Computed example of a mutant assay.
Amino acid sequence: MRRYTVSTAVTLCAVASLAAAMGPASAFPAAAPPAAHAVQQQPAPPVLVDCLWKPQVHPGDFMLACGDGNSRLASLRWSHWGADSAQATGTNLVNDCDPYCAAGTFHSYTVTVRLDDPKPWAKNPKMQQFTRMSLVYTDGRPDGFRQTMTYPLWS
């Protein structure tokens, strides 16, 4: 009988120790649910849609003439990319198409690129895309171009 009393006492002590270690339920604060409202996600920045219908942010290069490749932006360095606009400096490589485009020569022109007028993208309306691009030629420009050229971007 003593054997049962000792084992019962050991079991009761173990249970009491475990209960004391855990403490009463009110001693521990309830786990707080994730505060979804406290951390609001910022909307994704608008994108620049390329010739292959892929959205881009901060591209290093960008094709302007998708059909024939006779005008593209290269070496873009973005100083700003925000919800309403983006700005970069880079080079506009333009084919002079002289005597015809396949035999023409590409010339480099330093430009400042500005993107603006974000709107929902037709392919993915939850995503904003820039719909207008302005190029400001800072050191020479192609024949027939104004110092600032503004283009609508495809959607």
Results as ranks from 00 to 15, higher is better:
Met1Val: 11
Met1Tyr: 11
Arg3Ile: 13
Tyr4Cys: 08
Tyr4Lys: 10
Thr5Lys: 05
Thr5Gly: 00
Ser7Leu: 14
Thr8Tyr: 07
Ala9Gly: 09
Val10Ala: 15
Thr11Ile: 14
Ala14Gln: 04
Ala14Ser: 14
Val15Ala: 15
Val15Phe: 12
Ala16Glu: 04
Leu18Thr: 14
Ala21Val: 12
Gly23Lys: 04
Ser26Thr: 11
Ala27Met: 10
Phe28Tyr: 08
Ala30His: 12
Ala31Glu: 10
Ala32Leu: 15
Ala32Asp: 06
Ala32His: 07
Ala32Glu: 15
Pro33Trp: 08
Pro34Glu: 13
Ala36Val: 10
His37Gly: 12
Ala38Cys: 13
Ala38Phe: 02
Val39Ile: 15
Gln40Pro: 01
Ala44Leu: 14
Pro45Met: 05
Val47Ala: 13
Val47Trp: 01
Val47Gln: 04
Leu48Glu: 04
Leu48Phe: 10
Leu48Ser: 07
Trp53His: 10
Lys54Gln: 15
Pro55Cys: 08
Gln56Ser: 08
Gln56Pro: 07
Gln56Phe: 02
Val57Pro: 03
Pro59Arg: 00
Asp61Tyr: 00
Phe62Ala: 01
Leu64Thr: 00
Ala65Met: 06
Cys66Ser: 06
Cys66Ala: 03
Cys66Thr: 05
Gly67Lys: 07
Asp68Cys: 04
Gly69Cys: 10
Asn70Leu: 12
Ser71Leu: 11
Ala74Trp: 00
His80Asp: 08
Trp81Phe: 15
Gly82Lys: 10
Gly82Gln: 08
Ala83Leu: 12
Ala83Gly: 04
Asp84Ile: 00
Ala88Cys: 08
Ala88Asp: 05
Ala88Met: 07
Ala88Ser: 11
Thr91Trp: 02
Thr91Asn: 03
Thr91Tyr: 02
Thr91Asp: 05
Val94Ala: 03
Val94Cys: 02
Val94Gln: 02
Asp96Arg: 02
Cys97Thr: 02
Asp98Val: 13
Cys101Glu: 06
Ala102Tyr: 04
Ala103Tyr: 09
Ala103Thr: 08
Ala103His: 12
Gly104Ile: 04
Gly104Val: 05
Thr105Leu: 08
Phe106Glu: 09
Phe106His: 05
Ser108Ile: 00
Ser108Glu: 14
Thr112His: 03
Arg114Thr: 15
Leu115Arg: 04
Leu115Phe: 11
Asp116Thr: 07
Asp116Ile: 00
Asp117Cys: 05
Asp117Ser: 15
Pro118Phe: 06
Pro120Phe: 01
Pro120Lys: 00
Lys123Ser: 11
Met127Ala: 10
Gln128Phe: 10
Gln129Leu: 05
Arg132Cys: 03
Arg132Tyr: 03
Ser134Ala: 15
Ser134His: 05
Ser134Met: 10
Ser134Asp: 05
Leu135Thr: 05
Leu135Val: 01
Tyr137Asn: 08
Gly140Val: 06
Asp143Pro: 11
Gly144Glu: 01
Gly144Tyr: 00
Thr148Pro: 03
Met149Gln: 13
Met149Pro: 00
Thr150Ala: 14
Tyr151Asn: 09
Pro152Asn: 12
Leu153Asp: 09
Trp154Asn: 11
